[in-house]
Design a protein around this nucleic acid. Structure first.
Ligand SMILES: [Mn+2]
Ligand SMILES: [Mn+2]
Ligand SMILES: [Zn+2]
Ligand SMILES: [Zn+2]
Lengths: 144, 144
DNA sequence: GTTATTATGATAACGGTTATCAATATCATA
DNA sequence: TATGATATTGATAACCGTTATCATAATAAC
C-alpha cells in the first residue's frame, strides 16, 4: 500500500515549514486519501467529522492548503466557482469532460492538444505555466 | 455604425419576454457596448454611474443577465472566480491566454485545437456543447 | 516538566452575487 | 391624457464559500 509515501511527503512538508503534527491533520490527510476525488471542502469536512466530531471548517481549509503546497492535492474550480480538491500525487496532469445534465465527468488527456496548447501560447511570446481546459456536453446516459 | 443592430436585438428580447424599456437599461447597454471588453459588474457599475448616478448594483446585474440571454454578452470566469463580461455579438468564439504576473490577456482561437477538442469529447460518447480553455503563463513584457 | 511556538475551533468578516420589498416608471387601453 | 395592471428600480439584507481573528489548547525542543 502506498499511504506511507503520501504521509512522508506531508511530514516532510510540515518539517520544512517548522509546523507541527496534529491528530486533525492526520485524520484529514487520511480521509482525503481514502475518498473519491473532486471533493469540496464541505464534503471533506463532513467525512472527517464522522471520525473527529470536534473538527472545524477552518482546519479543513488550512490542511487542504498544506496538501496543495506539498503536491498531494490539486484545487480545481469548475463553472460553479466552488473549489474542489483531487489527488495529485501519482496522478498525471489531466483535463475534464463534464456532463451539463448530470455532472458526471471524465478525466482525459490528449497529448496532441497539450502540444498545440504549448505551441500556441509560446507563439504569443508567453512562457507557459499551466492551463485549464473543460469540455462541456451531454453524456451518453443523459442523451437518452 | 452598428449600435442599431445591438439595440434591436435587445429590444426584441425585451419584447419577447414582455419586459419594458427603461432609461437605466438603455444606459447600461450603451456603456457596455462603448467600453473595452472583459468588464466586471463593478467596473460597469462605475462607468454607468458617471452618467446615471442613481443607478444601483442590482440593476447592473439584472441587465447583464438580459444581455447574456439575448446573445450580446458572454459571462467569463477566470481563476479569481469574479464574473467578467465581454461582447459576444459579432465576435467569434475564442479562448484566452493570461499572464500570471500582470493579468494581460490575449484572445486566441486555434482551429486545430478546436477540432481535436470536439473529437475528444465525442470519442467519450458526449454530445459536445461548449468548452473553456485558458492558458496561463508569463507574458513577454513580464519576463524581462 | 517548562516554555516557546504552533494549531485549533468558534465565529466574525469578507467579497461577489442574488433576493426582498416598498416606491416608481412604463405602456396598453380607454 | 388619465387609468391601472404590470414591470422596474435602488437600498439593503441575505447568501455562500472562503478567510481572518483570537482566546485556548496541543505540540515538541529543551
Ligand atoms: Mn480530475
Ligand atoms: Mn475575450
Ligand atoms: Zn450526464
Ligand atoms: Zn504580463
Amino acid at each position: 500500500m502506498s499511504l506511507g509515501k503520501e504521509e512522508k511527503i506531508f511530514e516532510d512538508h510540515l518539517a520544512a515549514k517548522y509546523l507541527k503534527h496534529s491528530e486533525q491533520r492526520k485524520e484529514i490527510l487520511h480521509s482525503f486519501l481514502n475518498t473519491d476525488r473532486h471533493l469540496t471542502a464541505d464534503e471533506l469536512y463532513r467525512i472527517v467529522k464522522r471520525k473527529y466530531p470536534a473538527v472545524g471548517y477552518a482546519t479543513i481549509y488550512r490542511t487542504l492548503k498544506l496538501l496543495c503546497e506539498c503536491g498531494l492535492c490539486r484545487e480545481l474550480k469548475f463553472e460553479d466557482g466552488v473549489a474542489r480538491y483531487e489527488h495529485l500525487y501519482g496522478h498525471q496532469h489531466h483535463d475534464h469532460l463534464i456532463c451539463t445534465k448530470c455532472g458526471r465527468f471524465v478525466e482525459v488527456v490528449d497529448p496532441e492538444i497539450e502540444r498545440l496548447q504549448e505551441k500556441l501560447i509560446k507563439r504569443h511570446g508567453f512562457y507557459p505555466e499551466r492551463h485549464r481546459m473543460e469540455l462541456y456536453g451531454v453524456c451518453k446516459q443523459c442523451k437518452k
